[in-house]
Simulated scan of single mutants.
Amino acid sequence: MADQMTGAMTADTIQGSGGIGRLRSSLWILVLPALLFVILFFLIPVLSLFASSFDKASAGVITFQGNFSWDNYERIFTRPLYYMAIFRSVYLGAAAALICLIIGYPLAFIIARTARPGAALLLTILVLASMQLDMVIRLYGMMVLMGDNGLINAGLTKIGLISEPLPLMYNRFGVVVGLVQVTLPFMVLSLIGAIKSINPALEEAARSLGSSRWHVMRTISWPLSLPGVYAGTLLVFALAVSSYVVPALMGGWKVVTLPIHIYQQIAEVGRWQFGAAIAGVLFLTSLFAMALYILALRRNAGGRV
């Protein structure tokens, strides 16, 4: 009797293992379309772009010719016009990420901690409302607001506070403001989820023991929300450093970044190989900057990054 029960249990175990294996196989089948999409529309174009960057520059030639050369990268790192654009792109991306964090954290904290669902929903809708409009339309609206004859300068001139228009656009300030306006919702949404995951009982316990609100925020809420902070900061930085539309419109082609150089070389001059080299430098610069950021902040994350 015992042998029969043991045999039945063994058979059930084998059958169960087979069922788990078939389930895992079916799950991989579900992943296959997304995997093929990534390979076809991401990996292949990116690898082709990198291959073209090592090809000898030839105007109007798109396909890879196999003429290996370092001239494209040598030109980037020996001419100030191009290697200064690297530092300018990283600076603008870092500034936008920092400002988005300063502005977005209090807003995300209020949304996450609002007791009334209706109020939290309203605030979330206000955050998402700007994302419903196309980026170009939003930036043209900012140009109407911040231009030399825009609403801000016209209003300040009318009340006598300024005699000449303030330089709010076509400079780094205008580009940073545009990047913050475009990327702020991504920061807020990343922070809301992280703050909601914090157990409110921890904050209440600290308050009951005599800690001030600022001390609770600094020692409990902020450290526990660091995963959202890191995710939002990296997302904003990646979007800002690779932005083309914002520097083109808000910078007026005067704040030249790597994406603008890529557009000029490919769309205007037709030098696909050199444009591909600039794109490769932009990609590697973004990865390198994010890697340094993660390594610098991981020490204070307690293993949460």
Results as ranks from 00 to 15, higher is better:
230 Y>L: 12
103 I>E: 00
238 A>D: 12
288 F>N: 02
159 I>Y: 05
198 I>Q: 06
77 F>A: 13
200 P>V: 01
287 L>H: 09
201 A>F: 03
72 N>I: 00
102 I>M: 11
282 L>P: 07
81 L>M: 00
72 N>K: 01
23 L>N: 13
5 M>D: 12
39 I>Q: 02
149 N>D: 05
50 F>H: 05
266 I>D: 02
233 T>C: 14
195 I>H: 06
86 I>Y: 06
248 A>V: 13
25 S>K: 10
276 A>M: 06
236 V>H: 08
117 P>Y: 02
276 A>S: 15
281 V>K: 07
271 R>P: 00
259 P>M: 02
74 E>F: 11
302 G>L: 00
250 M>A: 01
42 F>K: 12
14 I>T: 04
236 V>P: 05
148 D>V: 15
114 T>W: 02
207 R>P: 00
246 V>R: 11
16 G>R: 09
234 L>D: 01
5 M>L: 15
22 R>D: 07
222 W>P: 00
190 S>M: 02
42 F>V: 15
102 I>H: 04
31 V>R: 07
285 T>A: 14
64 F>N: 14
151 L>I: 14
194 A>P: 02
86 I>V: 15
12 D>F: 10
201 A>T: 10
148 D>S: 15
22 R>W: 13
62 I>R: 15
187 M>Q: 11
174 G>Q: 05
182 V>G: 06
141 G>Q: 13
158 K>R: 11
84 M>T: 13
135 M>W: 08
98 L>A: 15
50 F>V: 08
179 L>K: 13
160 G>W: 03
